[in-house]
Computed example of a mutant assay.
Amino acid sequence: MHWIESISRTPAGRLELVGRNLDGHVKHFSPSQFPHQLPGSHTKLRVSLSSDAHRVTPVDDYLALKGWKHLSGSAQRLHRFQADSLEIWVPSQALFKMLFSTMRRTYDAIFSGRGLHEVAMPSHSEDPMALLPGLTHSNDGWAHAVRMRERLFWLLTSASATRSWRHVFRNAVDGVLDAPLPDGAFELRLTGNRLDGVFLATRATLAGVACSDLRLRDGTLLEPMQLDFQGQDHSKRQTDKGKRVERLDDASPWCLTDEQFHHLLDWMFQNKLLQDRGHYDEHLQQTLRRHLDLLRAKFLGRCVWDALPCSPQERACVQARLYKLQRAGHWERLSKLLFSSP
């Protein structure tokens, strides 16, 4: 397990990463060998974080709290997120695993300056998530790209995510390992250490992202969307009957009872998630209830968005509601109430 201290060039002119472990051993890595795991992982944490509650600072404070003062922080940056009373610290090395996963060809592409279009390109298909093989590809590499299609779709069509991977090479040429954080609300699975109100992440996995800056190749701006990176690929999900919710009615385990819904409704008004109760008529209440039932089916039923019993238009409305709640910082508190109901 090595901490990346610097970026250098090989005799052939290619970029390489220079890492040092806690024993002082120095090792050189090609981008495809990117070391994702840092030492000292003990505690696991699932958390929702927003790009709005984020700032970037030097990484020295992270190294000091970890007790790694003998390591150099000159190449990396520290991404700080606020999650209620807990501050989450993610160094650049863990941020790369979060954004770009562990696909080796992704790292080769973004560190070479050629970009992700070397791996895959969006298609003109009616399916907006359809991908075409990149400018150079192997059969094994393309099979891996298909399994990562939702992440690649996000990285290729989100304006802020595209800006992020485009900056990797520019920063690396200057000796800096970092990328600007894309816009959105992130569902993260973290591993690390908790100390003095700070969670020091050593590994970050992106389970999903809610974003509103997805634009297709023809210029079409898509509705705000919640993307799930933890399941199977998109095409297999659509036919996976084991993960499909067939209906939502009184017999469904995902539907709220009248008592549960009115308790949630009162809580939402009390906590300013909803405004002007006098104008929140029966129709608006029923629409809200339907959306909450669909969210319960999505997350408690562990199914994908396409497997929910609703139209594409209604699904987009539910995703937009979820996105707004996450952006406003309300989703974490609301989901605890919503998902604790039997």
Rank of each mutant, 00 (worst) to 15 (best):
A179G: 10
A179D: 09
P180H: 12
L181G: 04
P182G: 00
G184W: 01
G184V: 03
A185L: 09
F186A: 01
F186N: 07
L188N: 09
L188P: 15
L188E: 09
R189I: 00
R189S: 07
R189H: 05
L190E: 00
T191V: 05
G192S: 09
R194H: 13
R194W: 05
R194M: 03
L195F: 12
G197W: 02
F199W: 08
F199E: 01
L200F: 14
R203T: 04
R203Y: 10
A204T: 06
A204P: 01
A204S: 11
A204G: 04
T205D: 12
T205E: 15
A207P: 04
V209P: 03
V209L: 14
C211S: 10
C211P: 00
C211T: 15
C211H: 07
S212G: 07
L214V: 11
L216A: 05
D218W: 15
D218T: 05
G219K: 03
G219S: 02
L222A: 04
E223A: 10
E223Q: 08
P224K: 01
M225D: 09
Q226T: 07
Q226W: 14
Q226E: 13
L227K: 05
F229S: 07
G231V: 04
Q232E: 11
Q232I: 06
S235N: 12
S235F: 04
K236H: 12
K236A: 15
K236R: 11
R237T: 02
Q238F: 06
Q238V: 10
Q238M: 09
K241F: 12
R244Q: 15
V245P: 08
E246S: 10
R247G: 04
R247I: 14
